[in-house]
Nucleic acid binder design. Sequence first.
DNA 1: CCGCGATATTTCATGTTGTCAAATACTTGG
DNA 2: CCAAGTATTTGACAACATGAAATATCGCGG
Lengths: 143, 143
Amino acid sequence: MASSPTDPLTLEVVDLIGSVVARYHEEYDRAAAAHSLTGAQARVLALLSLEPLPMRRIARTLKCEPSNVTGIIDRLEARGLVERRPDPTDRRVKVAAATATGTRTARQLRDSLGFAREPLAELSRAERTTLRDLLHRMVGEQA
Amino acid sequence: MASSPTDPLTLEVVDLIGSVVARYHEEYDRAAAAHSLTGAQARVLALLSLEPLPMRRIARTLKCEPSNVTGIIDRLEARGLVERRPDPTDRRVKVAAATATGTRTARQLRDSLGFAREPLAELSRAERTTLRDLLHRMVGEQA
DNA sequence: CCGCGATATTTCATGTTGTCAAATACTTGG
DNA sequence: CCAAGTATTTGACAACATGAAATATCGCGG
């Protein structure tokens, strides 16, 4: 190990990551609230706007119980943003898919988020590249 | 603004930050669960281990309603990790303070977190310094 | 000094998210 | 075909979050 857990520099970086995490959530929830969505609903809608997914896969991606996903999809479906489809190859599974309205909402959400997180604009292109590489190695190593 | 919201490099960094956020939560909740604490409880306990705070200040730091803090402190107090003290200068306010046990728990929590987040060790000292500076500018600009 | 508006905390009602256990429906391999 | 396994839902419950209303206290203007 390159440094002890209590190494001051490491602790400082860990704290900074904590700040970034807090900030990220704040903005994510605010953007979601602008569409009367909760953070969890927005996350699932964003997922489904990429591709339809069976309930189980959503749960695995979110690292939560499938029974939890039922409720979230229920609420999204009640608002017409998502629909449940049968899986032709396995009648047990239900595939959740974003509706046209849902896809549109997801795109607006993503745009407003990308825009809100633009403090990255304070960094130069070269700096953003460096940041990308460092973060990539971090998440790469821990995955 | 230095780049459009849909700039590919910016979007990639934003996605990476999303990964870091997810990973951070996962580890934070796991470390908290090791002490039978929820994420919110662990966060408040960590706060109070630095210095005692009035309920209102806790709410402001957590960006939530004061009525929410009441419940979290209730649960921490029931387990002897925190205590409510009167404020000598204003009898309306109650100051929440970590007990000796609470302080010890908070320290263990912090150590295990620092250790768990040691994928930072994959980065050299110079790289961690660069990362610190970049993150610092990010959160500095947006604060 | 008195009273009135502001502030700190709590309580209550309600909604969302999360867990776990059990029920139901379906698939698959022996 | 049947038993074991899988996908989803349901129900009970806890934590977290908000907002409105109640209570206690503060501080200031008159």
